Structures are given as structure tokens and as C-alpha cells.
Amino acid sequence: MSEKKLVHVMRQAIRWGDMDVLGHVNNTVYFRYMESGRISFLEEAAGEFNMQGEGPVIVTAYCTFIKQLKYPGEIEVRTYAGAPGRSSFEVTHEISLVDAEGKADVVYAEGGGKVVWIDFKKEKSVPLPEHLKAILPA
């Protein structure tokens, strides 16, 4: 993604159940963290989704694990969006641990995916809503 725009920031606690037997956050949970950030951004930008209407699906997802997250702790998920296409756009996320001073400067994982806007009943892509396109980078 050539140009991206910070569109959402959220914080959440690392839960005890996020850990695996090795004592660090399980790799699958990072995708949940990114999903939470992405859905929170999309609900703020486009409203709640009606499964009888239109909304987002994710068609690709990836994550690079840089450092281990462990319980207890708090993370910050920063969500960035790329320029819109007809019915899709790229999102990327940075997951950082919040330190004792409340800063989240060190990235522990980064990832993203492609969001496609669809008609849920028809299971076909449709053009992105104009109000969503308006907040994405040109």
C-alpha cells in the first residue's frame, strides 16, 4: 500500500485467556486484536452492519510477529487505511504494548488485509459507500 492514513486507535487489555501454554499471546489472538480495531473503525465510519444489507468482509489477512506479548498488559491497535478501489481498500494495523508511562511506541506485531464491501444477501461485491470513501486517502 503506497499511501495510508491513520483512521483509528484503540486500546484493550491482554486477557489471561489470550495466552497459550508457552506463556505468551497465541498467534491467532493477534488476528482478533486486528479484527477488533478494524470493526471498531468501520462501525464508526459506516455505522452498524445490517446483515440484510451491505457491509465489509475481509478477503486476505496477514500478520508479522515482531515481539512476544504476555499477560498482564494493555495493547494499542492502530488501524491505517489505503486508497479506495471500486469495492475494496487495504487496511494495516500496528499492535503495540502500552508501557508504564502510557506510551505505545514499540510495535510488537503488524499486519493487515483487504476489505471488500459486499451485498450480504447476493454475496457479491458492491461499490464502497461514498461516506466511507470520503475518509480514505485519495
Rank of each mutant, 00 (worst) to 15 (best):
M34N: 01
M34Q: 09
M34T: 06
E35Y: 02
S36L: 10
S36P: 00
G37Y: 13
G37V: 00
G37D: 08
G37L: 00
R38Q: 03
R38M: 00
R38A: 02
S40P: 05
S40V: 05
F41G: 04
F41I: 04
F41M: 06
L42P: 02
L42F: 12
L42R: 03
L42H: 07
E43D: 06
E43R: 15
E43K: 14
E44A: 14
A45Q: 07
A45C: 08
A46S: 09
A46C: 12
A46D: 11
A46G: 04
G47Y: 04
G47S: 06
G47R: 03
E48M: 15
E48S: 13
F49V: 15
F49W: 07
F49N: 04
N50C: 13
N50H: 10
N50A: 13
N50M: 05
M51A: 09
M51R: 12
M51V: 15
Q52G: 14
Q52D: 12
G53R: 08
E54Q: 14
E54L: 02
E54K: 10
G55Y: 04
G55M: 05
G55V: 15
P56G: 01
P56M: 06
V57F: 11
V57S: 02
V57Q: 03
V57A: 00
V57N: 01
V57G: 05
I58H: 03
I58E: 04
I58R: 05
I58M: 06
V59R: 06
V59P: 00
V59K: 10
V59N: 03
T60Y: 05
T60C: 00
T60A: 06
T60N: 02
A61D: 01
A61G: 13
A61S: 14
Y62E: 15
Y62K: 13
Y62R: 09
C63A: 12
C63M: 11
T64S: 14
T64W: 07
F65C: 01
F65L: 04
F65V: 00
F65K: 03
I66L: 11
I66M: 11
I66N: 04
I66R: 12
K67V: 13
K67R: 15
K67Y: 12
Q68S: 14
Q68C: 05
K70R: 14
K70Y: 06
K70H: 15
Y71F: 14
